[in-house]
């Protein structure tokens, strides 16, 4: 919506400002960057989507280990592929400086929830750790280490001892790791 126009309408802009944590300048910058990603034929579309591959070429996301997950979580399209401008704004809003801890932790949880079943279970945690330590065989932790680490993680955060970390538990953990808010940040 409005992404086809070379500039955003005033009403639209104020709506964007009202519904996201971004400032006017950030929205305009986001719009500029988004328009650059659109291909020619997309531009004609009323509500264009930038395919995931194009989004991933953004230098801000290119080397992020969670880039695919981020795109997937923020995509509202049916195939979970590609972001509309509003999805893109949502992404930037969640990763902006002024977003609340609650929003950030919620999206972090979704990003970490690889199988999208609503809890972080052992397989999610394993994928998470692999994502953070590198996927290749020589960089990833050995199975024993992984097992130990996951049991440590669960011991730390699984308050109700059901073997998984749910959103509340995750937010609890997050609220006690003060670095999270400052590091869960992507600035265009």
């Amino acid at each position: 919506m409005g992404a086809t126009a070379s500039h955003l309408g005033k009403d639209l802009l104020s709506e964007y400002q009202e519904l996201t944590f971004l400032t006017k300048q950030e929205i305009l910058l986001a719009h500029k960057r988004f328009s650059e990603l659109l291909s020619k034929e997309d531009r004609a579309h009323p509500n264009p989507r930038v395919p995931t591959e194009a989004i991933l070429t953004l230098p801000e996301l290119k080397s992020n280990p969670f880039r695919a997950r981020i795109c997937r979580v923020f995509s509202t399209s049916e195939s979970k592929d590609g972001l509309s401008f509003e999805d893109f704004l949502d992404l930037l809003s969640a990763f902006s400086d002024s977003a609340t801890l609650e929003i950030k932790s919620h999206y972090a949880f979704r990003i970490f929830d690889f199988d999208e079943d609503g809890t972080l279970d052992e397989s999610d945690l394993e994928k998470l750790v692999n994502c953070l330590t590198g996927e290749t065989d020589d960089t990833r932790l050995s199975p024993e280490e992984m097992k130990q680490l996951i049991s440590n993680i669960l011991e730390e955060s699984d308050i109700d001892k059901d073997g998984t970390v749910n959103l509340s538990e995750f937010q609890h953990v997050i609220s006690r790791s003060p670095d999270f808010v400052s590091s869960f940040k992507i600035v265009l």
Binding site: P59, K62, N64, F66, T133, G134, N152, S157, S177, S183
Partner: peptide
């Protein structure tokens, strides 16, 4: 609380440099 979660949560999403990301992954491991 132990540090595992804190380490995992402190992944810096603002780091965009390819080399730095690789280094961070190593350090984190």
């Amino acid at each position: 609380a132990g540090g595992s979660w804190q380490l995992l949560c402190s992944w810096d999403f603002s780091v965009t440099n390819e080399k730095a990301v690789r280094q961070r992954k190593n350090n984190l491991r």
